[in-house]
Write a protein that binds this DNA or RNA. Structure first.
Lengths: 346, 346
DNA sequence: GTGAAAGCGCTAACAC
DNA sequence: GTGTTAGCGCTTTCAC
């Protein structure tokens, strides 16, 4: 049926073992041999059988990705990133929805899971659940928190620097001339919200802009909460000229409210988001936002897990904190504030 | 390391084969034996090694999913559906982006792919590419078109009845009292657009509503195109009281335009979408739309492929057309038209 | 740097 | 109903 390693070996006139070495990028192969093998691989269209290789190598880990909010745009991107990784590697990915679980249910689920998987990926807010981390930790299962906002010594993490990112995007607004900059905070149960908000405050402080409590609204990462927060903000006697929403969904909501009130974005109001999910480019104007390298983060998370699984159980506990570079994505939702624009004749 | 089938067999005092039969739910096992085995499984926490079973059963197919528009919300849902299936089964999923390929590039890529995979899933618009279908067909690779809009005898398909769905959602609008119903068509390169539009026309005709060419606008499934189409529609001397957008992204755009013009949805204008992607519930009001059972469709598609792969190469050509049930999802974007509402005192 | 032997954990096919 | 035999496609280990 499919092309096997033996066929490739026969064509290249080497042993299957050599083909295996070439395919897996091992070093101890003569260059000429390697080329001959690669040629055979190309000609035959050989693709290694993952079931066989993982069985032979005993590297068939089961990795679980547990989530609680399948509708969040961010999680979608993450799942996609993980999907890309699974397509390249050998392990079984188990994905599970723990939405609405209370502490008891979480404990039970974690206990069950602990017995059947080699590693677990935890996106927020699960990566901040004491119950889950405690239970899985007791079972000796390697875990990695993804996009956790901050480092917790009990669990490895792959994340960006949410503080810095929040600070940078606020600074971008300041550089555009804004001083009345509002912030719609993210869900209080997630450290990332907190860190982004701290970044916002730090940028203001460094620029010598006095903080204004009225300009800070609590949001919950949902479109709905963004709607409410923006309404309050724009109803202020002295409304902001720019809004920093802690994620794209809320930023999209802010744009919608602005439009409904006859405000043009960015001419009358600048808006920035966070995450660079599909929502950011679905609307008009497209959103200036912060991009998390989700594909790379998924990659790194799985790498950490695989490494831990291959290690002896005794030292599963090696905890790493992998902070990846984020990126400010400048699009069309920011302009100088109206007053300045007028002054400079625009 | 992990518990194996032999350990379970030893504990239950049967052969590994019997354990296998019990675990895989085969019938020919005495009830008492089954119970004994299940008990051993439970006590040991046995979880079958997928790599081993797929290798032994020769069920380790490679299945490719090719796409051209990774940013479309619909594709995201599909990928997610496929991910759920892969989590349960054992085969290697290859996902590949052919965005921007011309006919020559498509031909080349299809030829390469044909040699290395057991089956291919083709979402629109690739499932309508003569080049791809021809090339893959020549290679004898089973294919399945997903959400293709209509049946093509050259390729198996899993889809909903787009005509019927389009008709039903239009009828829903008619039942609410609307007679000036606009349609924003989908991308002309996809049969599904055509079928949905035909459904719209059929509903109008059955209700005795004369078609009005002004109320039909060409769209391209993008938010941007929805914006333009809606602007034209609402600039009409006699604008529609309801808009049927051929997908959710365009419906969301329609809502946005309505709001910008000071129209309330659904009080002043009813809007419906299609697909029930996350966009439908991200905005306010939440969109009434048609839900495709994407998870089930992914399931069915992979099932068809797996079945075909297991068959002898000679009869790969069995082509099936699997039409699944769609669902009208009623939310908050439809109300009676303004005039009627006024008449009935609302 | 390369090859030979052995076996990963499971199930198809058959025997009983 | 249940057990036996053989082998899926690959990699490990060790020899050369």
């Amino acid at each position: 049926m499919a092309v096997t390693i033996d066929e490739v070996a026969a064509l290249a006139q080497v042993s299957p073992m050599t083909v295996s070495r070439v395919v897996n990028g091992q070093s101890k192969v003569r260059e000429s041999t390697r080329e001959r093998v690669m040629q055979a691989v190309g000609k035959l269209g050989y693709v290694p059988n993952r079931a066989a290789s993982s069985l032979a190598a005993a590297q068939d880990a089961r990795i679980a990705l547990i989530y609680t909010n399948p509708s969040s745009a961010y999680l979608r991107e993450l799942l996609l990133g993980v999907l890309h990784v699974t397509a390249r590697t050998t392990f079984q990915l188990i994905i599970d929805d723990w939405e609405g679980f209370d502490a008891a249910a979480e404990r039970k689920a974690a206990r069950t899971l602990g017995g059947s998987v080699g590693g677990v990926i935890l996106p927020p807010p699960l990566c901040e659940s004491k119950v889950v981390i405690g239970e899985l930790g007791r079972a000796g299962v390697p875990m990695v928190a993804i996009a956790s906002g901050s480092f917790n010594p009990d669990i490895s993490s792959v994340r960006i620097d949410d503080f810095l990112a929040g600070k940078e995007i606020t600074e971008y607004l300041i550089k555009a001339g804004h001083t009345r900059i509002a912030c719609v905070k993210g869900h209080p149960n997630q450290m990332a919200s907190q860190r982004r908000f701290e970044g916002y405050k730090a940028a203001l402080k460094e620029a010598g802009i006095a903080p204004d409590a009225q300009l800070v609204q609590q949001g919950y990462f949902t479109y709905r909460s963004g709607l409410d927060a923006t309404e309050k903000l724009l109803s202020l006697r002295k409304p902001p000229t720019a809004i920093f929403a802690s994620n794209d969904d809320m930023a999209v909501a802010a744009v919608s409210v602005a439009h409904r009130r006859g405000l043009q974005v960015p001419r009358d109001l600048s808006i920035v988001g966070f995450d660079d999910t599909s929502a950011a480019t679905t609307i008009w104007p497209e959103l200036t936002t912060v991009r998390q390298p989700i594909g790379n983060m998924a990659d790194a998370a799985i790498d950490i897990l695989l490494r831990a699984i291959r290690r002896k159980p005794e030292d599963h506990r090696v905890v790493v904190d992998h902070v990846m570079a984020h990126q400010l994505v400048v699009r069309d939702s920011v302009a100088p504030p109206p007053v300045l624009a007028r002054k400079s004749g625009t």
